[in-house]
Design a protein around this nucleic acid. Structure first.
Lengths: 139, 139
DNA sequence: TATATAATCGAGACTTCTTCTCAGTTAGAG
DNA sequence: CTCTAACTGAGAAGAAGTCTCGATTATATA
């Protein structure tokens, strides 16, 4: 966790951005609670670290992190935008009924990614694989 | 296209919902322009079919179609929620820089889906596989 | 075909989310 | 330590999404 945290900080700094308390609070939230946080949740959690944190700054910081491809936005099962770390891939099973989300690790997209990169001359940085259906409690 | 259209209509009817002009306009948009439309775009396009179409009805209809698992929401490269048909899977390459989206057909997740369904006792209905990176124009 | 009625609608008020503006503050280079 | 461009919080403004309610209508049934 501490290692990833310093990675984010390092990336920000290398890109020429200042490491302000507000940004460190947002990064802190993203790192400590490895979840799928919305802007609102990041604001609420971030204020526990840095109480003055403003809503606008959360939006600005997340936009920055997305631009730098350090995090990426996803939708789960409600109309709220959420974020995950952009390192590697993300793999979910999302229940269409209760919204429950299971993460799984094993992923078989390596070879496909290779093929697509060649075919479309596309530099692939991360991926999202999401299955939708009904969890065991809902079917 | 006409076949898919009647599938959507049939599904709505079978579920006990009325086929109103407003709903047919929304369905018409989803079917005719096989794209990733936002609420706003569906409203604008839908009004070309049925001018009285209201914003609230677009939201209501999309919620309905998502509940019935006929469409599913996705996120591409801006903070707007969009929708795709929920049949089968969806496969995109999304450029982090210009937002350009390439769709591809070949997908290798069948076996993985099987394994996960068994492991988590999860009934999988559709999937989304999305690679993020830089398109050939942006790197 | 006509009728009854529950489902659905449009309009607009209202709430929530996101962006913008601006004057004050500050991280970090020198 | 000083200076300055980068950054911030606060709140206004604009956009997106939800809710309410009286009017309308698709469709089952006769």
């Amino acid at each position: 966790m501490a290692r990833e945290m310093s990675q984010l900080k390092k990336a920000l700094k290398q890109a020429g951005y200042k490491l302000t308390p507000a940004r460190l609070a947002v990064i802190g939230v993203l790192q400590t609670h490895c979840e799928h946080y919305s802007h609102q949740q990041i604001l609420t959690e971030g204020r526990k670290i840095y109480p003055k944190l403003s809503r606008a700054t959360v939006y600005r910081t997340m936009e920055l992190l997305v631009d730098l491809r350090l995090v990426r936005p996803i939708y789960l099962n409600d109309p709220t935008q959420r974020f995950v770390m952009a390192t590697g891939g993300h793999h979910h099973l999302v229940c269409s009924n209760c919204g429950d989300t299971i993460e799984f690790d094993h992923c078989t997209t390596e070879q496909l990614a290779q093929e697509l990169a060649t075919k479309y001359n596309f530099q692939i940085n991360s991926h999202l694989l999401e299955f939708q259906g009904l969890c065991k409690a809902c079917h």
